[in-house]
Amino acid sequence: MLVVVCIKQVPDTTQVQIDPVTNTLVREGIPFIVNPYDTHALEEALRLKDRFGFRVAAISMGPPNAEATLKKALALGVDEAILLSDRAFGGADTLATSRVLSEAIDRLNRQEQVGIVICGKQTIDGDTAQVGPGIATRLGYTQLTLVDRVEKFDPFQGRITVRRKLEGRHETVEAPLPVLLTVVRELNRPRYPTVPMRLESEQATVQVWSNQELQLDQNGIGLKGSPTWVSRIFSPQREKGEIVGDGVADPAGAAHLLVDKLVSRDLLVV
């Protein structure tokens, strides 16, 4: 059985800042990282590999320099790394992205049966959480999002039971394979690469699939296949820190003010 992990190279958003003078994005020297949620997806796939001996393939759609991200996955122990890169894929929104990724998974499935696809809950640059469901729906896999624990996995019966983390509650769900999981940070603690593996991964090759391989209709991918587009960007209004009331002279009054402020701003529901 093949386990497929979808990972994305993202700009390290904690380092993205708005220039206060020009009001534009300061991107100078901002490094690219593996989307943090995807590191948990990768870890879960590698645990399945450790336990059951499955092969793990990591796929990523992105520019040629996203190869670095896949090399990191190779250093952690994935067996195969595939970069989906083509000018025609560029400028894609989530709909067009999931079309390319699901086609690639389907292609892998033709070589070796895919049992589980694992994605991070969302990316930190887009924050959409839409690509996972998009892939699952296209492939017709059962979609189990926001997984924070794999309760049971029976590869012989082909069934998996997971716990999903939702607002204020947890759900335990059982489904037959194939499934697509999107995972949250609480699921696991990603491993650290050993140096021999890092050195091996530096030599390893990342396969690059362009649309030559996938043969998707040009109108369904990239910019052309994306129903949504960004019409404008601007910097958000920054909330300055605010001291509420006079906590020294009137602690109760300050506390009331604070609670009322939270309630009035709908930050707190009573």
């Binding site: 390290d12 904690t14 380092q15 800042q17 300061v26 020297g29 490094p31 990282i33």
Partner: peptide, 12 residues
């Protein structure tokens, strides 16, 4: 490794 400081604060 990612941000070249122990706390992971933005280098900026």
């Amino acid at each position: 490794e990612a941000r070249s400081n122990p706390w992971g604060i933005a280098p900026t």
